[in-house]
Write a protein that binds this DNA or RNA. Sequence first.
DNA 1: CCAGACGTTGTT
DNA 2: GTCTGG
DNA 3: CCAGACGTTGTT
DNA 4: GTCTGG
Length: 220
Amino acid sequence: MCGRYTIAAGAEFIGPYFDIEGPLPEFHPSYNVTPGSDAPVIWQAPADGRACSLMHWGLIPHWAKEPSSKYKMINAKAETLAERPAYRSAYKHRRCLIPTSGFYEWHSEAHGKQPYFIRMKQAPLFAFAGLWEYWEGEHTINSFTIITTPANELVGKIHERMPAIMLAENYNTWLDPNFGDESVLQELLQPVDSALLQMYAVSTAVNNPINDSADLIKPL
DNA sequence: CCAGACGTTGTT
DNA sequence: GTCTGG
DNA sequence: CCAGACGTTGTT
DNA sequence: GTCTGG
């Protein structure tokens, strides 16, 4: 799955990389983005260009009675997006990209859990595939979830699943709210080739959400 | 019909 | 054990 | 994902 | 909102 990631770039890098023409939100680079925090999301309205907004990590379905309820979904299985009531409409109309520079997975070992950091070899910045949703209350809350796929060969050494990585050549198709060919969308969500990734063990300092520095991604 | 759930992961 | 907060 | 709390009363 | 279970 994907329960922690990094975004070691400021808005000044995100804008150009994702071809955002409009305004960019303020956010700080982070080596420890945790569920429940606000993070930048790239999305596209039906008759508009790409936009970047901060959203809440943990999708709140629009029918949730309270935004603080138990319905905060941080991950969504790629294989069942079209069936799940909580995701079906977002899958059709509100697909998004989550800018990232890498993610963490934990491996259960004899002595405890060992965190690993996984990044793209050739891309300091890339994107997870995700879905976003809005919740109408006193204030509107926008939230997102990260889609997961079965792990590829590399990540499979330590974990069963991993986040869906969207390749840059497919950004347009994935973000287009008018695109509806589900078999193509499922193709775009296939596990990324192991050859594109690099993985190594890191300190358990990442475990505590309070820690946030470049030291977190130093190889052990 | 109304009431209640709506999710993933890992572990057992 | 289970929920909440980060 | 992991870490940390999880409770009430009366008193300061 | 929509589906499932009673």
